[in-house]
């Protein structure tokens, strides 16, 4: 892989007072990869995502997206460059219907300065939003208010809203957290299928090792703000350090325990 990485971080540091949340993170992700990020709570996974998406300024280091520095850019600017994200707790507009949530996302994706007089619901937009909902298998909830929709569906809508802008890269922050155990694999199946169809590069944070092992081509293992392993799934998951510090630890084990019970 000699071409420019789609996302690259160089010597990324971040401290919160005395706590080191990110320490010398050097990661390069190439177009088409599906990368899983693992690590126990507080290992620095979300901090990494927050820095990469412009929510949190790093204390030091450089972040490149498509060969351009995105350091210091506001989240909306980074989004517009083609990096979308979903959230650990689905971030929707609860008073609006599922369709309207999608339409808002689509309308913003079309133009950063939304129109004052053109209606939100144009036939073209509705058609595209419906098509995307269908891809995720949640079209039946189209006219439901978000508050009346099951948790798993909300997570899918959250991801669908990120994807409707046709991003080059998608960051998924714990796509299966808060979802019932038996729904986790079906949910990931539909997400990964759509993502593959759109040819989007994916980086996702996940506690459940089985899910990570099944869907990713590469794993980044975080511990105490550092990347302690980076490589193909079998290699990383067999790594002694990773087994000791990440896999047999905290949420990773927890997810497994729940699944087997």
């Amino acid at each position: 892989m000699s071409q420019t990485p789609i996302l690259e971080s160089r010597s990324l540091h971040r401290t919160f007072g005395a706590v080191v949340a990110a320490k010398d993170i050097n990661v390069a992700i190439h177009a088409g990869e599906v990368v899983g990020v693992i690590g126990s709570n507080g290992a620095g996974k979300t901090t990494f995502i927050n820095m990469v998406t412009g929510f949190l300024p790093p204390s030091a280091g450089e972040i490149m997206f498509n060969g351009r520095s995105i350091l210091g850019l506001a989240p909306r600017k980074i989004t517009r460059m083609g990096m979308a994200r979903s959230f650990q707790v689905a971030q929707l507009f609860p008073e609006l219907t599922v369709l309207d949530n999608m339409l808002v996302a689509l309308s913003i994706a079309e133009s950063p300065l939304p129109s004052f007089l053109r209606p939100l619901r144009t036939p073209e937009r509705v058609e595209k939003a419906e098509a995307t909902l269908k891809e995720f298998g949640v079209a039946a909830f189209r006219d439901h208010q978000v508050t009346a929709v099951p948790q798993g569906t909300r997570k899918l809508v959250d991801i669908a809203m990120a994807l409707i802008a046709n991003p080059k890269m998608l960051l998924l922050d714990e796509p299966t957290s808060g979802v019932a155990v038996e729904e986790k694999f079906p949910l990931m199946d539909s997400v990964m299928e759509v993502v593959r169809r759109h040819g989007v590069t994916v980086l996702f944070v996940e506690h459940d090792m089985e899910i990570v092992a099944r869907y990713v081509s590469r794993i980044l293992a975080f511990y105490a703000g550092e990347v302690i392993a980076d490589g193909p799934p079998d290699q990383v998951l067999d790594d002694a350090k990773v087994r000791e510090l990440v896999v047999g630890h905290g949420h990773g084990g927890h997810g497994r325990a729940r699944r087997s019970s």
């Binding site: 909306r76 507009f93 609006l96 939304p114």
Partner: peptide
């Protein structure tokens, strides 16, 4: 018209979840 327009809905969206609006790419 305004309330049915994109801006009208984005305003509602801001009220409900401003962070997400920013992450969708609007100011």
């Amino acid at each position: 018209r305004l309330s049915k327009s994109s801006v009208g809905y984005v305003c509602e969206a801001i009220r409900e979840n401003e962070v997400r609006v920013e992450y969708l790419g609007a100011s």
